[in-house]
Design a protein around this nucleic acid. Sequence first.
DNA 1: TCGATTTATTGAAACGTTTCATTACAATAG
DNA 2: CTATTGTAATGAAACGTTTCAATAAATCGA
Lengths: 315, 315
Amino acid sequence: MQDVAKLAKVALGTVSNVLNQPELVAEKTRIKVQDAINQLGFVRNDAARQLRAGQSRSIGLIVPDVRNPFFTDVARGAEDAANTQNLSVLLANSDDEVSREQSMVALFEEQRVRGVLVSPAGEDLEYLKQAKRRGLNIVLVDRKSKEFSSVSVDDVAGGYLAVKHLIEIGKKKIAFVGGPLSVPQIADRLAGARKAITENENVSLEVIETSTLSVQAGRALGNQMKNFDGVFAANDLVAIGIMQACMVDGEINIPNDLALIGYDDIDFASAAIVPLTSVRQPSAEIGNAAIELLNSSEIRNVEFQPELVIRASTN
Amino acid sequence: MQDVAKLAKVALGTVSNVLNQPELVAEKTRIKVQDAINQLGFVRNDAARQLRAGQSRSIGLIVPDVRNPFFTDVARGAEDAANTQNLSVLLANSDDEVSREQSMVALFEEQRVRGVLVSPAGEDLEYLKQAKRRGLNIVLVDRKSKEFSSVSVDDVAGGYLAVKHLIEIGKKKIAFVGGPLSVPQIADRLAGARKAITENENVSLEVIETSTLSVQAGRALGNQMKNFDGVFAANDLVAIGIMQACMVDGEINIPNDLALIGYDDIDFASAAIVPLTSVRQPSAEIGNAAIELLNSSEIRNVEFQPELVIRASTN
DNA sequence: TCGATTTATTGAAACGTTTCATTACAATAG
DNA sequence: CTATTGTAATGAAACGTTTCAATAAATCGA
C-alpha cells in the first residue's frame, strides 16, 4: 500500500480511504490511486486488515459429513443468508470425529471469525462452552442446548411421525436402524419411534445400531432385514443403503415385504430405486436461521417441525 | 500474549517460543507459561500470525456446485491430502456464477492462502492468469490448460466410451443432454460422443442443451425423450432428473424404450430407480493430485482416464 | 476581502504476532 | 580460577493494514 501511495503521490491514509470509503476521496485522486493499484497489481492483505479490525468477515460452518446432501443444503441456506450481510461462509468437515471438530473450531477461533455454526459430532459440549466463555460466538445447528443459541428440528416428533405411519399402513415388526445412539438427534428419533410403539399393542420395535449414518452402513445390514416388515432408518443415506442391499439380494421386495422410511428428504430420496418415504427437515431454512441467530445477543432456540413425505417405499 | 508474558513473568518472545518451538524452552518455564495461557484463556490471533508469516496454512477450493456429490468427493480427497501436510481446506461454492467465483478467488487471494484449487465455471480464464501473475498459486481442477497446473479427466474419451456403449447395445437415435456447451468439460464429452457416432453409420446424435447440470434441468426434459432410444447425459444429476420424469409420466420404460447413461458415477447412481450406467471419474484421486500439484513449481498437467460402469439403465 | 465552514488529505499510532541478534546464565574443560 | 562452549531468555523491529486527530485547501456568506 505504501508503494501505491508513493506511485500515486498521495499519503498512505488516502489509499486506504480509496479502498474503504471512496466517497470521501476526490474523484481525481481516486482515479490516480486506482491506476496505481492496477499498475502494481496490488492486492490488499486480509491478515493485516483483520488484525487491525479485530474481526473477520467470515463465518465458519462445521458439519459432520459434507457428503450428506442434508448438510450441503443447510450450508447453501447459510451462505445465502450470510451473503446478504456481505459475509462469507467457510465450510469445514469434521467427518464425525470430535478431534477434527475441535481442531476446526480452534482454527476458526484463531481466525477470529464472526461466529461458528456447528453441528456437533459428540455428546460433550464442554469445549464449546469454554470457547464461548472466551468470547467465541457459537450457534448449534441440528442440536438443542440451553447454553447456546440453536436451530434444531423436533426429532422426537419426526421419529413419531415415521413410525406412526408404518403402523397405520399395517406394519407390526418394525426395526429402527441408525447410530451411534450417543448422537442426540438419533436418540431423539428413536425416542419418537418408541412413543409411537407404546401407543399401539401388537407392534414391536427392534433397534439395530450402526456406527455411522452412511449408505455403506445401510448396505451392510441388508440381509438382517428379513425379520421385519417395516424399517425406520435414521437418515436417507442409511435407507438408500438398505434399499440397495435388498435389490442386490432380490429376496426382499420394497414396499411389499418391507416398508422403508428415511429421514431428511434429500433430493435423492425421490430418485431412489423405489422412491423413498422420508421425514423432511427444512434444510435451507435451518441454515438461514442459524445465521440470523448469530446476530442475536441473547440465547435463542429455534425449533422447526418436521414433515412426513410419503412415497412408494411405504405405499 | 503480552498479558500471558506478564502473568508468567517472562518475555514476550518466550511465550511465542512456547507456542511454536517448545523444545527450545526449559520445562519449568514452559509449564509456567502454559498455566498462564490456560488461566487467561488466551487464544492466538491468527491474523497477526499470518501477517508476520506472510502466508496462511489454508488452501481454498472453489467448486461450481457443492450439492453435486462429485465435487464433495473431490473435496474429501483434497482434504485428506492437505491434512497430511498440516494444511486446512476451505471449501467455497461459486454456484456456477463467474462473478461469485471471482469474488471467492479475490477473498482467498487477500487471505494469502497457500493456493487455490478451482474448477472454473466460465470459459474465460484471463482473471485467473492475472492473479497468477500477481503470485497466486493456482491449480485447475477438472479442466485442462497450458498456462496452469491442472488435474483433469479425459472427457473426450469418457464421451466416446458412453456413446460407443449405447451403439453396441443397438441404439440408433441418441440424444446428448447437457450444458451449457460453453463449459469445456461438457463440450469435450459431446466431442467424444460425436467421435463414436462418426465411426458408425445409421446412428444419429441430437444435442439438447440445458442451462445447468442439475436434477431439475433433467426432469424438465422428460417428455422430449420420446424421440430417442438412447440418452447420454452430461452428468448423473441430469440423468437422474430424466429418469424421474420418465417414471412420473410412466410412458417411457428404462432401459427398454430408452437406454440412459450418466457421467461421474456418484454414489447415488447405483441407488437410482433404475441403477444408472455411468462414466466414472476418480474423484478423490483428483482432489489428492490437485494438492500435490500445488507444491510443484513448474506447470504440470495430470490427466486421468475415465471408466465405464455398466448397470441396469443400459442393460 | 476576511473569517467561517466544509471538504480533502495527511501521517503517526496501533493491532498481535514472529524473528533474530543480543544478553544472561550454567556447565565444562584446562 | 579462567576461558570456552552451550543453553535459555530477552525485547526491539517488522509484517500491512485502519483509524483518527490534525492540517490544508476549497467554498461560502457578508
